[in-house]
Amino acid sequence: MLQLIARTVATALAVALATWLIPGITLVGEHDTKRVLTLLAVALIIGVINAVVRPVVTFLTGCLVLLTLGLFLLVINAAMLLLASWVAEKLSLGFGVDGFWPALWGSLIISIVGALVYRVLNPERRG
């Protein structure tokens, strides 16, 4: 349970940084509490998509991943962020990604920063 909370908080912080750095990624909310709750909800959406949809897509595009020596995984990550944005839009959360390039750069930031923050927050993984 603690790992799930740490992963969600890490992803939410990474999404917050991506919305601050990448012009095409937006987060809208009337007040700070609404924006924080939106970030946590988007982090949960990203977690579910990465657990359910991403493995299927990676399996189905395995030949492209191998052919590009893994670079196609960047495209898959961008597509997963676009999917998370679409789900957030359908849930009226106030989070959006405006196209492929912001999704690509945003997914890179979310992946790297999320992993680093999770490493700091998760006490069971410290070595």
Rank of each mutant, 00 (worst) to 15 (best):
T58H: 01
P55W: 05
G47K: 08
L60Y: 05
V56G: 00
A10E: 02
F72P: 01
L83D: 05
G127K: 10
L73D: 07
V52L: 13
I25L: 06
P102V: 06
G127A: 10
A10V: 01
S107T: 01
N77A: 02
A6H: 04
I49H: 00
P23W: 08
V113G: 08
G99C: 10
Q3I: 10
A103E: 07
T19H: 10
T38N: 14
I45C: 01
W20T: 14
F95N: 06
R126N: 09
D32F: 15
G94Y: 02
A51E: 02
A6Y: 03
A12C: 10
T19D: 09
L27V: 07
L2C: 06
I109V: 15
I76C: 01
L4W: 14
A88I: 09
V87M: 05
L104I: 06
V113W: 05
A10D: 04
L67E: 02
L64V: 03
L39C: 14
A43M: 09
S85P: 07
V97D: 04
T61V: 06
V65H: 00
N77K: 01
G94L: 04
P123D: 11
S85N: 08
A41Q: 09
W20K: 14
T61Y: 03
K90D: 05
V75W: 08
V65L: 02
R7H: 12
L73E: 10
L69W: 03
V9L: 15
Q3S: 14
A78Q: 05
V53N: 00
Q3C: 07
V42D: 06
L116R: 12
L4G: 09
L71F: 10
R126K: 15
A51D: 02
R125M: 12
G99W: 08
G94R: 07
A88E: 11
V87G: 01
T33V: 14
I110C: 05
L83P: 10
L40T: 11
A51C: 02
I49Q: 00
L64R: 01
V57S: 00
V15N: 06
V113H: 08
R125D: 08
L91F: 13
I76M: 03
T11G: 07
P123R: 15
I109Q: 03
T26L: 11
F100E: 04
W86N: 04
I109F: 06
M1Q: 12
A16V: 04
L116S: 13
G106T: 08
A78N: 05
V87S: 03
I49L: 07
V42R: 03
V48F: 11
T33L: 15
S85M: 08
A14K: 08
L83M: 14
I49S: 00
G96H: 09
E124K: 15
L121Q: 12
V97H: 07
V120Q: 15
L81K: 09
T19K: 10
V15W: 02
P102I: 05
L13W: 07
L67W: 04
L82M: 15
N122V: 06
M80C: 03
P123A: 11
I25S: 03
T33W: 14
H31M: 09
T61H: 04
T26C: 04
